[in-house]
Simulated assay, not measured.
Amino acid sequence: MSRFNSLRAALSPRPVARALALLSFLFALAAPVHAGSLTGTYSLVPAQIDTGFSVRVLGGKPVLGGFKNVSGKIILNEAAPEKSRVNVKVDLTTVHTPNDRITGFLKSSAMFDVANHPVATFQSTRVRVLSGNAAEVDGVLTLRGKQQRTKLTVTINGTGNAVSFEVSGGFFRSRYGMDAGLPLYADKVNLNIKGKGRRS
């Protein structure tokens, strides 16, 4: 019964019909469009994603930084979580750190080589539920024209038209030809990503 028909029935002169119809109308108003279901496609926009990374330094403080332009999509299937998908694009030219010299080095040909490879992508290949709202996501990270498998842990919360998520994991930079500074600067780049997705 549509909300309009419920309202019209609620005005019926018959007392019982009027009471039942009024309750139906009130429940229809209270129920969200996507009540309880996260199934759907969610767009990721740069303004709502905080992508941070850290690299340990032997005998010193870690190098901290992030990327200002990360976008993509999350496709969730609540009935069959293993069919969920994640696709992310990272604009490497937006890498930043508190130190301009380090930022410049990360953009150079020795590291991300943004002049020739300005974009990195991650595309999931498998999703496995760990517990509750946490999942292990296997995927392919493409960086500097090279593809390597990597694994991330993702936690998702939300209802209705939006989800919030937190991602942890990382990758080994030497696998992409970025071995400058080893072993003083650690091989593993640790990722910590937080953000929101809006239902498309």
Rank of each mutant, 00 (worst) to 15 (best):
V129M: 11
D187H: 07
L106P: 07
I49L: 02
D138C: 10
Q147N: 10
L64K: 10
G145F: 14
G132L: 02
R149C: 04
S6K: 06
A28E: 04
P32S: 12
S168V: 14
S54A: 05
D50G: 03
S108H: 09
G177F: 03
N133G: 12
V33N: 10
D187Q: 11
F27V: 14
T153Y: 13
A135G: 08
A17Y: 09
D113H: 05
L26G: 04
L38H: 07
V114L: 03
V140H: 04
F122E: 09
P118L: 06
F67Q: 01
L106A: 05
G132E: 10
F122V: 07
G72Y: 03
V55G: 04
G139F: 06
V163C: 00
E166M: 00
V70G: 01
N77R: 03
A162R: 04
D100A: 07
A21P: 08
I156A: 08
E136L: 03
R56T: 08
P81H: 08
R198H: 15
I102Y: 09
L58Q: 15
G170K: 06
L152Q: 01
A19I: 13
G195K: 05
I74L: 07
A30R: 05
P13S: 11
S131L: 08
L141S: 04
L106R: 08
N190P: 01
L29H: 06
T51Y: 12
G65F: 05
L152S: 01
P81Y: 06
G40L: 07
V154I: 13
V167E: 06
V33W: 04
V95T: 04
K61C: 11
P98V: 08
N161I: 01
I156K: 07
F105N: 05
R175D: 15
L44A: 02
V33A: 14
S12G: 15
V137Y: 01
S200A: 11
R8C: 04
R149S: 15
G36R: 05
R85S: 11
Q123S: 15
G52R: 14
G197K: 03
V127H: 02
S43E: 14
P46I: 12
T51D: 09
R128Y: 11
R3D: 09
K146R: 00
T93S: 03
I156D: 01
K61F: 15
F171Y: 13
G195I: 06
D100R: 13
A186T: 02
G158M: 10
S24Y: 04
V57R: 07
K194W: 01
L58K: 10
I49E: 06
T150A: 09
A115P: 02
S24W: 12
R198G: 12
T155H: 09
R14W: 12
A30E: 13
V119A: 14
T155L: 11
T155V: 09
R149T: 12
K188N: 07
N157D: 13
N190Y: 12
L184Q: 04
S164E: 08
A110W: 11
P15T: 09
G36F: 15
V129P: 00
P62Q: 06
F112V: 02
A79T: 05
R173M: 03
A162Y: 07
D179F: 05
A31L: 12
G65Y: 10
R149E: 13
L182P: 05
V127I: 14
Q148G: 07
V137I: 11
N157I: 10
L29V: 01
A9T: 00
F27G: 07
L38E: 05
V57D: 14
L22Y: 08
R3F: 11
M111L: 10
N133W: 03
S168A: 14
L130K: 00
N5T: 12
R199D: 06
